[in-house]
């Protein structure tokens, strides 16, 4: 049987889609709450800095950003095809590289906190 990297690509896409389905709405809600006068304690600098400073927090934030970026990148590749862009190889390279760059940036910022 021919080897394919599709299961890995799709597995990460599915994992990212599940993670983002569960938490992206509530993450947006968290940063919208201050607008209506409710300041979540986590968003106070000292608290968030302590959370992102602990290795558990770093790991959580890194995992979320990595999976969500990969999910968005893979679906964007499919979506561009659906919109009539037929240069799939070039699109694939660009979107996956962008996701990888974002993931590395997340690691870099997290290590500086």
């Amino acid at each position: 049987m021919a080897k394919s990297n599709k299961p890995i690509v799709w597995g990460l896409f599915a994992a990212g889609g599940t993670v983002t389905a569960f938490i992206t709405p509530v993450l947006v809600l968290l940063t919208l709450l201050p607008v209506v006068g409710v300041m979540p304690e986590l968003l106070v600098y000292d608290n968030l800095h302590a959370f992102a400073g602990h290795w558990v927090g770093k790991l959580l934030l890194f995992g979320v950003i990595f999976l969500v970026l990969w999910h968005a990148a893979h679906r964007l590749r499919i979506t561009l095809h659906d919109f009539g862009v037929r240069a799939d190889s070039a699109v694939a390279v660009i979107v996956y590289l962008a996701a990888a760059a974002g993931t590395l940036a997340a690691a870099y910022f997290l290590l500086r906190i």
Binding site: L27, V28, L48, V68, L69, A72, L76, T79, L110
Partner: peptide, 26 residues
């Protein structure tokens, strides 16, 4: 179907906001 697929643009945008948040936090 297309509306569902296009959500990825906004999910990706939110991931970028999270990245900027980490940068500002650092």
């Amino acid at each position: 179907y297309m509306a569902r697929e296009v959500t990825c643009v906004f999910i990706g945008l939110h991931a970028l906001i999270l990245l900027v948040a980490l940068r500002r936090l650092s």
